[in-house]
Simulated scan of single mutants.
Amino acid sequence: MKTKKGLALTGNYVLLIVLGVLFALPFLYTLYTSLVTMQDVNHLAGFSKWTLANYKLFFTNDAYNVPQWLWNTVAMTAIVIVGNLIINPMAGFALAKLDFAGKKWIYWIVVATMMVPYQMILIPVYVNVAHLGWLNSVLGLTIPFLYQSLYIFMLRQFFISIPGEFIEAARLDGLTKMGAFWRIVYPLARSSLITMSILAFSGTWNSYLIPSTFTSDPTKYVLVVGLNSVKDMFFENTPLIMAGVVLATLPILVFFFIFQKQYIEGVSSSGVKG
C-alpha cells in the first residue's frame, strides 16, 4: 500500500514538473532570445555568445527613454495598489458588516459593473479625464482606477466569513467601527489583500489600452506603451523586442513568487460565502 502511494506521489511530482517546464518554455525562449544577437535567433548559441547588449541599448539610448517609462510605470502601479488597498477593503467591509440604507442596491450595482467590459465605458471616462485636464498625467492613469468592483466583491465575501463577535468585542473595548476595521478586521484579510495586490499589480503593470489612450506624450508613456513604440520602429529586431518583453514581464514574476503562498491562501479563502 505504501509503495502504491509512493509511486502515485512520485507520478504527481513528475507530472507537475513536466507541466511546469511546458508553461515556462515560452518565457525561457523569450529570455534566451533577448540574450543573443540577431544572427543566433532560432539557433542554439553557447554561453560565450550571450550578451546583455539588447538591455544596455534600452537603458542607454535616449530615443527609447526606458528609465522614464519604467519610473512612470512604477509610480502608476504603486498609486493604484495603495488606493485599492484602502478603498476596496473599506467598501467591502461596509457591504459585509454595516447596515445602511440602499446597501443591497449598492451591492448589486457593484456586481453589475463587474459584468461590463471596460471598453464600453472607455469613451465616457476619457471625456471626463480630458475635462479635468488629466490627460498625459499620472492623475488620469490612477484616479479612475483606485477601486475595482471585482476586488470589492472579493473582499466582501471574505469579510462575511469573519464572526461579528470580533467586531462587537472591539466595540466593547472602546474602538469605533473604523477602529475595529483597521485594527481587527483589516489584518485578518492579509491573504485576500495580497491576492488583490498581485492581481492589481499585474493588471496595472501590463495595462496598455488605458495608458495608450490617455497619453500621447512619449515622456509620459508607461513601459508597455513605450516598448510597443520600439516594436513598431524595430519590428525585425527580434532580440531587442524580446528584451523589452522580459523587462515588462520579470517584475510581475518576482512579485508573484514573493507572495505566492499568500496568493494561494487568499484565493482559497475568498468568495466561498455569499
Rank of each mutant, 00 (worst) to 15 (best):
L250Q: 04
I162Q: 10
A63K: 07
Y13E: 05
G140H: 03
T176A: 05
I86T: 01
R183N: 03
G140Q: 02
T249V: 06
I109P: 12
L7Y: 15
M114Y: 15
L95D: 12
F201E: 01
L57E: 11
N61V: 04
L247K: 09
W50K: 02
T176D: 09
L175V: 11
S192E: 15
I81V: 06
L35M: 05
V21E: 04
L9Y: 06
R171I: 09
W50V: 01
I198V: 13
N54Q: 14
M120H: 12
L139I: 06
L253G: 03
L19H: 01
S268C: 11
G274N: 11
A45L: 10
Q119A: 13
S207Y: 03
S229P: 10
N12P: 04
Q262V: 02
G226E: 14
L52A: 11
Y147G: 14
P67T: 14
T33A: 13
A101I: 12
N54P: 06
I17M: 11
G179N: 07
M242V: 02
V14Q: 05
K261S: 10
E236M: 09
G179P: 09
F234Q: 05
T213G: 09
L57V: 05
Y29Q: 09
L15K: 12
L16N: 10
V80Q: 01
I160P: 01
G244W: 05
Y186T: 05
A45R: 11
Y221Q: 05
V230L: 13
N12S: 07
Y208R: 08
A112C: 06
W108C: 07
G226M: 14
H43I: 14
D40E: 12
P89F: 00
T213H: 10
I258N: 06
K177C: 14
A130I: 08
L240R: 07
F93E: 13
Y208C: 02
L9E: 10
N84D: 01
T37V: 04
R190T: 09
E265T: 07
I167N: 07
G83A: 13
A8M: 13
L223S: 03
F235A: 15
F158Q: 03
F259E: 03
F259R: 04
T73E: 00
K261Y: 14
L135S: 13
V245L: 13
G11R: 12
F58Y: 15
V66H: 03
L199I: 02
M154E: 08
I106G: 08
F201A: 01
L199R: 01
V116H: 08
G266R: 09
M38V: 15
G102L: 02
M120Y: 11
T204Q: 06
F159T: 07
A130H: 09
F257L: 14
A45P: 11
K49Y: 06
L132T: 09
L188H: 12
V224L: 09
A94R: 04
F27W: 11
S216L: 04
I160S: 02
N88F: 00
Q39F: 05
L227Q: 00
A63Q: 12
H43M: 12
Y118T: 02
L9D: 09
K97R: 15
G179S: 05
V254Q: 01
L132S: 04
P239L: 11
V185G: 08
